[in-house]
């Protein structure tokens, strides 16, 4: 990696670092890994993850993927728990504002790259958009087999019986599959894959999505991908089909009955209400409705 072969650094607003922090050689290595990942949907590709100036477990994999696909004319949206203003989303957005100087947005439809932790936006994504997931544990078989050497073998042989046994045992014990998030999926009919800790509510959005879905796990040094319009099935049984979470209430702010709801505790006497976890979706709906008071807040318990 001599100075002669290194591309000219286009300085971001933060002087002293390359555009989007990572050096071009590292980005090239990550892009190669992404290409491989896209070619083998759902397969976890090892990559030489770097130490980032943010802690492991706080999105270093997603940040490295975003840094590698980000261009100067991209518009970036960062969400955590569906919200643009949670502290870690703010911190990551600020990191890219500082190191790349790219435009940022909260508008899902405006963003060309969306980095997310734990959610897929409610608004449907379109072709050309890139959804980057932050992944803590990329291996869906990890809770069945802690050894990497073994779990890699299981993937190679498509030996997923143990996973089905686990799901079956859940049904036998609890009458339902007791996995509410990070619910395993099968990508393109081949690899069982961890969707990252999104609620299973979001799993159906991964199926045949027009956007590219990239997954980065920094500490575990793995990248995987779901190319546009790829089959993504949540594992289930014929007599116990996959189901997503439902609420009896609607969002107390925008009245949506279709979005994923967060429970907000409003007092210490059991009062609680439900609001959309996707803050941009919720704000848009509130802006679009007539100025009259929200009649929905009654549904959310004792909220006033």
């Amino acid at each position: 990696m001599s100075a002669a072969t290194a591309p000219v650094a286009t300085g971001g607003p933060e002087t002293g670092y390359n555009f989007a922090y990572l050096d071009e050689q590292t980005k090239r290595m990550i892009r190669r890994t992404i290409l491989k990942a896209v070619a083998i949907p759902g397969y976890q590709c090892p990559f030489g993850g770097r130490e980032m100036p943010l802690p492991y477990g706080w999105g270093t994999g997603g940040i490295q993927v975003t840094a590698s696909v980000l261009g100067a004319d991209d518009t970036l949206k960062v969400i955590d728990q569906g919200a643009d203003d949670t502290t870690n989303a703010v911190s990551i957005r600020r990191f890219f504002e500082r190191t790349a100087g790219v435009a940022t947005t909260e508008r899902t439809e405006e963003a060309t790259i969306i980095q997310t932790r734990h959610r897929i936006p409610e608004a449907p994504l379109r072709e050309g958009q890139v959804l980057v997931y932050q992944v803590p544990i990329p291996e869906p078989l990890r809770w069945l087999e802690p050894r990497e050497t073994e779990s890699r073998k299981m993937h190679a042989l498509a030996e997923y019986g143990a996973m089905h046994v686990r799901l079956y045992e859940d049904i036998a014990h609890h009458g339902q599959i007791a996995t509410a998030y990070d619910y395993p999926v099968k990508v393109n009919g081949r690899y069982v894959t961890a969707p990252s800790p999104i609620p299973k509510f979001d799993n159906p959005k991964m199926h045949m999505n027009p956007a590219i879905q990239l997954f980065g796990a920094g500490r575990e040094k793995r990248i995987y991908a779901i190319p546009p319009y790829t089959r993504v099935e949540s594992l289930d049984f014929e007599d116990h089909p996959f189901e997503v979470q439902r609420w009896d209430e609607v969002c107390a702010l925008c009245g949506s009955s279709e979005s994923y709801l967060d429970e907000v505790i409003t007092d210490d006497r059991g009062g609680h209400m439900f609001v959309c976890s996707d803050t941009y979706y919720c704000a848009e709906r509130q802006a679009a409705r007539p100025a009259a008071a929200a009649p929905w807040s009654e549904a959310g318990g004792s909220a006033k």
Partner: peptide, 12 residues
């Protein structure tokens, strides 16, 4: 870090 979404999934 916030885990509201996953915790809500567990609550449900």
């Amino acid at each position: 870090l916030p885990h509201y979404v996953d915790f809500q999934a567990e609550l449900v």
